[in-house]
């Protein structure tokens, strides 16, 4: 499969006045055509900032993509002019946000908001765009599409609004769909429907999905390939089945252990001890060392590199560095 998007050594820093926060620190990843890649991690680990960097939503002052390349179909998105970027956004790459309630403009009708990218990117007339909008609304499983086009966002439920967001996102037949926690704000039954729908569209149009989530259940259901992030770094990545069967990095192991198991009553759910380190106080070390049960001396002083630990599986952990093991 061909690489659709390839991110090399991307670093995005935020400066809040007290110092640099390395929200995304030297990460490399790729999404191939028709593949679903899930990025997992706790809050604040840089998942969303990765997505924002791809979409060019990191705005100065405050945040800045300081390093790296994002190759999409052979073009480096970070080098493109504003106009070139605009023709890619909403057309080849589209995005769904976490909060459907606040992602739609409250004063514009649903129809107008679906029609807009159609008119802008596909040069449809107003009438054609409206017909297409009604089709799209039906496609995402909402009946009475003829009425929904003329309603306002406050008249629909969260689940319906997220469907509308998906309708907008798929309207341009994107090659890549970035979904930033698309189901976090929805209840579980709607979650399943939304995920099903995404998978269905993916299969129909050979679209790639970059799914950002903290829900391992969603990962298991959707992903082909999983990337685990911690404090702005990729700590482990791998093919989904392998990663779930034999997680290598202690953080991934902890994450999987803290997942509730159906039909098993536990008094207390496992949780990884400690807190995510303060991103302002990070020093050269494995960022996970003070929460890690296998912490060694080298973990406190040197950062491990992401390297192959098994077939189709990489981890950044000193436990798997041969040089260290042999010492």
């Amino acid at each position: 499969m061909k690489d659709l998007i390839k991110i090399d050594h991307l670093s995005t820093y935020f400066d809040n006045g007290n110092g640099k926060v390395k929200a995304v620190d030297d990460i490399s990843l790729r999404v191939r055509e028709g593949e679903t890649v899930c990025i997992v991690g706790e809050s604040g680990c840089g998942k969303s900032v990765t997505a924002m960097s791809i979409m060019g939503l990191v705005e100065e002052p405050g945040g800045k993509v300081v390093n790296g390349q994002i190759h999409f179909n052979g073009k480096d998105l970070l080098q493109l002019s504003k106009n070139e970027l605009r023709t890619i956004r909403g057309n080849d790459i589209s995005m769904i946000f976490q909060e459907p309630m606040s992602s739609l403009n409250p004063v514009l009708k649903i129809g107008e908001q679906i029609m807009e990218p159609l008119i802008v990117h596909q040069n449809l007339s107003k009438k054609e765009a409206r017909e297409r909008a009604i089709q799209l609304i039906e496609q995402v499983g909402i009946s009475r599409a003829g009425q929904i086009v003329d309603s306002y966002p406050h008249e629909l439920s969260g689940g319906m609004l997220q469907r509308i967001m998906i309708a907008i996102a798929i309207s341009g037949n994107p090659k890549l769909l970035i979904a930033d926690e698309p189901t976090t704000a929805l209840d579980v039954t709607i979650q399943a429907q939304i995920l099903d729908m995404l998978r269905q569209f993916k299969e129909q149009s050979n679209m790639s999905i970059m799914l950002i989530t903290h829900d391992l259940g969603v990962v298991a259901e959707m992903a082909d390939y999983v990337i685990v992030m911690y404090a702005g770094k990729i700590v482990e990545e791998g093919e989904v089945v392998k990663l779930f069967q034999s997680p290598k990095h202690p953080y991934t192991q902890g994450l999987l252990k803290s997942k509730p198991v159906i039909n098993q009553r536990q008094d207390e759910l496992y949780s990884i001890p400690g807190q995510v380190p303060n991103p302002l106080e990070l020093t050269e070390s494995c960022y996970f060392h003070d929460r890690c049960a296998h912490c060694m001396d080298i973990c406190r002083t040197k950062q491990p590199k992401l390297s192959e630990v098994a077939e189709q599986q990489k981890a950044a952990c000193w436990l798997y560095e041969e040089a260290v093991v042999h010492v």
């Binding site: 909403g90 057309n91 403009n105």
Partner: peptide, 23 residues
């Protein structure tokens, strides 16, 4: 957030300003 969504849709500034913000 809906303005971020408008950016992501690849709309022109003029459209964002007059069709999305002013209303």
């Amino acid at each position: 957030e809906f303005m971020q969504a408008a950016v992501v849709l690849g709309l022109r500034d003029r459209r964002k300003l007059f069709n999305h913000l002013l209303p």
